[in-house]
Design a protein around this nucleic acid. Structure first.
Lengths: 138, 138
DNA sequence: TTAAGTGCAAATTATTTGCAGTAAG
DNA sequence: CTTACTGCAAATAATTTGCACTTAA
């Protein structure tokens, strides 16, 4: 990790009003380190830290994912009653979900065209729209 | 509940290859008894049985919802990491989810027009498409 | 009669929390 | 220094499961 990259991750945190602690920087590096978007679960991210130098406890991974989500750095995607997924791409975009492996991935955003969306009932506004395309191996 | 209604519910079960037991009939009645579509959680359905004559254990409610889903009588909707919802309307249609009360309801199907949908990757087919419109009280 | 269904209590899984210690501003 | 953050272990919440009993076919 170069100085430049460290700077990017620290900025990602501080711009959201979060302290760049050792653990948060380690998680940030795993999440946005290579510039690609990523879909993680608490468990998968925890596993990833176990391969690195900077260990982070599982409880902190859970708490940090929640903090990052609340701060708008991640988007929580609910596809599976059991596990929560977090996406580093926080914009509205569709997902593929492989039912057999429980893997979540982005679907090409440009291939989803919603011509009309139901409008929010009186007294409500749309907070977000989740489109999940569930896939079965054929 | 009239004889006619009992017949409807027994048919609902047997047409899916399920034995119409006392417990399943009681749950079926609560689910499709009045002909309206319904969104339930295991807990909410269990609560409903507690007001009736036919008691059903919570474990059986859980098991039965799973069995009904697997048989195609219900559709499981995942909106909330914690709880599972089941919809008596098994067709593809959009949902509103109230974030504050965690209430799930149908969104008007005719108001959702998807002009283009990403196609399934090689080796996969679309099993279903979930569209959940999350609402914030304004 | 017999395989499927049920109910209880215990087990499991994902996640959160209390609290004492640690570190960032 | 002082308040936020971390880590552990214990708590919680939703759901599943093992197993003896019951019931539909």
């Amino acid at each position: 990790m170069t100085q430049q990259e460290k700077h990017t991750e620290a900025n990602w945190l501080t711009s959201a009003g979060l302290r760049p602690t050792r653990q948060r920087l380690a998680l940030a590096q795993l999440l946005i380190g290579d510039g690609n978007h990523r879909h993680v679960t608490a468990e998968s991210l925890y596993e990833a830290t176990r391969d690195g130098v900077d260990k982070v406890s599982l409880a902190t991974v859970y708490n940090t994912l929640r903090v990052f989500s609340d701060a708008g750095l991640l988007r929580e995607i609910t596809v599976n009653g059991a596990r929560s997924y977090f996406d580093t791409n926080v914009s509205n975009h569709p997902h593929f979900f492989w039912e057999d492996t429980e893997e979540l991935m982005d679907a090409p955003d440009e291939d989803l065209k919603i011509a009309q969306l139901p409008e929010a009932p009186e007294g409500a506004e749309i907070s977000k729209v989740d489109v999940v395309i569930r896939l079965r191996r054929s």
